[in-house]
Amino acid sequence: MKRSSNHTTTNRLNRTHRHSYLLSGLLECAHCAGSYAIMSKDRYGCTNGQKDLRIAHLDDGVCANSKTISRSELETRVLDAIPARLLSVGSTTSLQDEINKQLTATTKTGERDQEKLKSHLSEVSRK
């Protein structure tokens, strides 16, 4: 069986030549809410504006945001905005503990709901 090779992220070959940066996939255009991505050598820009895509919530207009920013400048601004204590070992440990508690609680709730559904299904099947 021959697999079709397309130009999506599911294509392993396509993923191998795409660089991934610190903010890849996390940026959004303030004007049209489209994705901000590397447009030219190390510069981020709005992909909707570059491609002249029609945007429904802009009354089928094109994104007028033609501003770009260098990758290094943007990464510096973002990292400078994060307080140093936020990334300390103690804060990440307490954050991880809280995440683990929430996951445990969610899992227990899900298991209880599943048991209730099984019980209800048995009751309905019996009737």
Rank of each mutant, 00 (worst) to 15 (best):
T107C: 08
Q102F: 14
A81P: 01
A30V: 07
R126L: 07
K116N: 12
I69K: 02
M1R: 12
E123Q: 12
E98H: 11
C29P: 07
K51R: 10
I69L: 02
K118H: 07
E75K: 05
T8G: 14
I55C: 06
T47N: 00
Y36P: 01
T76P: 06
H120Y: 14
D60G: 13
S35C: 05
L95R: 03
H31W: 00
D60P: 05
N48M: 02
S88Q: 03
S35K: 09
I99P: 00
Q102G: 05
N48A: 02
S94C: 01
A56C: 03
C32P: 02
R112V: 08
V124Y: 10
D60Y: 13
L87C: 05
T104S: 09
K51P: 00
D59Y: 04
S4R: 11
A105K: 10
T109V: 10
G61Q: 06
T109E: 15
E73L: 06
H31N: 09
L53A: 06
T8D: 12
H7A: 10
Q114K: 06
Q96K: 11
S24Y: 01
E73M: 06
N65I: 00
S125E: 13
R71S: 02
L26K: 11
L117S: 11
T76C: 04
L79Y: 01
D60N: 08
G25C: 01
D60M: 15
T68P: 02
Q50V: 00
L27C: 02
S24H: 04
A33R: 13
N11S: 06
N65Y: 04
L58W: 01
T109D: 15
I55F: 04
R126V: 07
H57P: 07
S122G: 12
I99N: 01
N65E: 00
T8L: 15
T10M: 15
S70G: 14
L95M: 03
R85Q: 14
T76D: 10
L53F: 09
A56Q: 09
K118T: 12
K2Y: 15
T109L: 15
H17Q: 05
D97I: 11
L26Y: 08
S88I: 01
R126G: 10
N6C: 13
K67F: 05
S4Y: 14
R71Y: 01
E73V: 10
G110W: 12
R112H: 12
H120P: 01
A105W: 05
R43Y: 15
K127S: 14
T8C: 11
D42A: 13
L86D: 11
G90D: 14
G110T: 10
L87S: 09
R77W: 07
T109K: 15
A84R: 11
L22R: 13
S125N: 11
V78G: 04
A64C: 08
H31S: 05
P83F: 06
A64K: 08
G25S: 03
E75W: 00
I69M: 03
M39H: 06
K116C: 09
S88R: 00
T10Q: 13
H19I: 13
R12M: 03
L103M: 04
I69C: 07
T106C: 07
P83Y: 03
T93N: 09
T76F: 05
K2S: 09
M39Y: 03
S122V: 12
V78A: 05
E123S: 13
L58G: 02
G110R: 14
L87M: 09
L27E: 02
N100C: 07
A33P: 01
D42P: 00
K2I: 14
R54C: 09
K108W: 05
R12N: 03
R71A: 00
